[in-house]
């Protein structure tokens, strides 16, 4: 499943990384923030939407260690962020898609406004396709179900494929083997 997921996600210009542990994933994210020069300045911030991945992670210390990183996602912060980090509930192998219950507005702000979206997905939650997902997740329980497949794109000018129009221009997917509790 993972291999197909990875192939399909890469085919739509997503970056896919496989990481064994949650701690390792935090380090991976921090490295990326550093290499993208995240700082406490307009346009250079980072927002990390709250979620069960962060249970047990010392976010206060993290926020202090990385100037510009915030765990309290607001419209304004997300607007000025270069990077947004959210966790996703499901992966779909045959389309390389990520799916999450994004009823909480922070999830949407952090995954749609910044230039780079880092998505965290447990490797044991990759399903085959949409029909399989429909068995697991339904609008009965979630007011906003979001599917994300690759970065934002357009072909509206002369049909030239261009990445990053209204949403992120980079989608970095971290598929993590160490599971965490997901609600939906």
């Amino acid at each position: 499943m993972f291999d197909l997921f990875k192939t399909r996600a890469q085919a739509v210009s997503a970056e896919v990384h496989r990481l064994p542990t949650r701690n390792g994933t935090v380090d991976f994210v921090l490295n990326l923030l550093a290499s993208e020069k995240v700082a406490d300045a307009a346009g250079f911030g980072a927002v990390w939407a709250n979620g069960s991945f962060l249970t047990g992670v010392d976010t206060e210390t993290l926020a202090r260690k990385v100037p510009g990183l915030s765990f309290a996602v607001t419209r304004e912060r997300a607007k000025e962020a270069r990077i947004g980090i959210t966790q996703m509930d499901w992966g779909l192998a045959n389309t390389g898609s990520l799916v999450a219950d994004q009823t909480a507005v922070e999830q949407r702000l952090a995954s749609s406004l910044p230039w780079i979206h880092i998505a965290l997905l447990p490797s044991n939650r990759i399903l085959a396709d949409i029909p399989a997902l429909m068995q697991k997740l339904s609008p009965d329980k979630a007011a906003y179900i979001a599917f994300i497949t690759g970065p934002s794109r357009t072909a509206d000018i002369e049909r030239v494929l261009t990445i990053g129009v209204h949403g992120p221009e980079r989608l970095v997917i971290c598929v993590v083997d160490e599971p965490w509790e997901v609600n939906s």
């Binding site: 399909r8 739509v12 779909l92 045959n94 389309t95 390389g96 898609s97 009823t103 909480a104 507005v105 609008p139 009965d140 979630a142 007011a143 906003y144 179900i145 979001a146 599917f147 994300i148 497949t149 690759g150 970065p151 934002s152 794109r153 949403g167």
Partner: peptide, 15 residues
């Protein structure tokens, strides 16, 4: 495309 970049399923108002 196999799927568009975004699909949103909205049921009732969100916060």
């Amino acid at each position: 495309q196999l799927l568009t970049s975004y699909v949103s399923m909205i049921t009732g108002p969100t916060p």
